[in-house]
Design a protein around this nucleic acid. Structure first.
Lengths: 253, 253
DNA sequence: GTATGCAAGTTTGCTCAACGATCGCACACG
DNA sequence: CGTGTGCGATCGTTGAGCAAACTTGCATAC
């Protein structure tokens, strides 16, 4: 039995748009996971969309086995919803889940701020400044670049902590927030205020852990507020009707 | 081709020692994952131990496919270490990783405390009291029950928040802490002080979020201290030599 | 005694065909 | 219109198969 061509092998190096950082082979299972994850985050695969194993496997040039593995992992992360015998769908988080994710994310990012306060190296500091400058430049042009850079700022901070588990959790929570904001967010509400990023860097440099944590908390809270999600404790008619208003193209005042 | 008997199907209902809570079928892949996870946490599978797909599959009565899926998921959780083409081993966290996990856990549990402060129902409160009484009883008998109940107290708190993501992260961090303490902890150092659990419940009931968070933080910090892991910032000869001392059967004073 | 090369055996990563179970949908019937 | 049945699609899983990678044991050279 001849073995078929392996299209993904040809594609794998280009998935990241650059060569692998090391010569460690990247298992195809990993590549499938990353491709699907990215397609969900970038909204090529829309919230609620059905994900048939067969056709996804065909499109990626891999067997169902690897697709199933990727689904399993994405389900743990909350990006895919799996039900026994019912297959996989891109997750469609409820408002309750959204609130949970944002709450946890705020806690995690506070931890990042506390960890980094007073510990930034000159190199890291310069790197953050450069990033903020990119954000400002992108903000002037009003494109999707601005949103991407906003999110990357937070990932960059988590990376700088050097805590792998914290980074993983922040990445995961951030991905889920992206999905949630795609569903519930107001247009253009996904990006962060660049000025707040600047203030945060200053507090981290000053070594004021409490101030940095408070700034971070306030910063993320204002992202949520701009995105129409009220914080826990403010359950009112607005919460209940929000998805209906959106589906009818209405914008609450 | 006749299909073989399915030993795991016969075993699955007994894995939890009780009937499934609902009639939703439990996929075997899930059962394999849970069995392996439990075996690692309970230390039937020791840190560093090699996990061959073939023999694990035979022992659990499932195909390699499901074993591979379980490995993938356990690897994400940090309980299993996977290297391409080198197979799976039970994870053996470094001291650095240990520190990371404890730091994140402290942050997560602080979040739990803040979430619950002033929000415990009477039922929840009674449930926690009952749990602490069980801990006290088990503590008198000096068995493994005491350690298990200690860990469960924290999981129970996280459940009470109603935040699924927070619960998942606490469960995961807690599992990894168990593995770490198995490697690096002093004997009998894994359990919590029951009196501190009591103080925590009081603060939660009083609605003092700041105090509850501080108590939780201090509580977990003292678990770490008792277990020989110094907090970050105290890198000294003790850190460096700890694993060597242990491997030679020496106990630092 | 130590280092190196090679062959054989073992394990891993993955594909694929196969089969039973489950589900949704269309159609027939009362 | 409501209900039951049959069918096709999909899911969950198994096991055979194969290539690649790795490990182990043995022979040989220095």
């Amino acid at each position: 039995m001849p073995r078929p061509a392996r299209p993904l092998a040809a594609n794998t190096p280009s998935l990241n748009g650059k060569k692998a950082k090391t010569d460690v082979p990247v298992p195809r299972a990993q590549a499938v996971y990353k491709a699907l994850r990215r397609a969900i985050i970038e909204q090529a695969l829309k919230p609620g969309m059905k994900l048939p194993e067969d056709s996804i496997g065909e499109q990626l040039g891999v067997s169902r086995t690897l697709v199933r593995e990727a689904f399993g992992r994405l389900a743990v992360e909350g990006l895919v919803e799996l039900k026994p015998n019912r297959g996989a769908n891109v997750a469609y988080p409820t408002l309750e889940e959204a609130r949970d994710v944002f709450e946890v994310r705020r806690g995690l990012e506070r931890l990042v701020a506390e960890n980094l306060a007073g510990r930034l190296t000159a190199t890291q500091s310069a790197e953050l400044e450069a990033h903020v400058r990119l954000e400002e430049k992108a903000h002037e042009q009003d494109g999707p670049e601005s949103i991407r850079l906003s999110g990357e700022f937070h990932i960059k901070l988590a990376e700088m902590t050097g805590n792998a588990l914290l980074l993983r959790y922040v990445q995961e929570a951030s991905s889920r927030c992206s999905l949630i904001l795609a569903i519930y967010g107001r247009p253009h509400s996904s990006e962060c205020a660049v000025s707040e990023h600047r203030q945060l860097i200053e507090a981290l440099r000053a070594g004021d852990a409490a101030r940095a944590a408070a700034l971070m908390d306030h910063h993320l809270q204002s992202v949520v507020t701009r995105a129409l999600l009220a914080p826990r404790g403010e359950r009112d008619i607005r919460d209940v009707l929000a998805p209906y208003a959106l589906s009818e193209g209405l914008t609450p005042s």
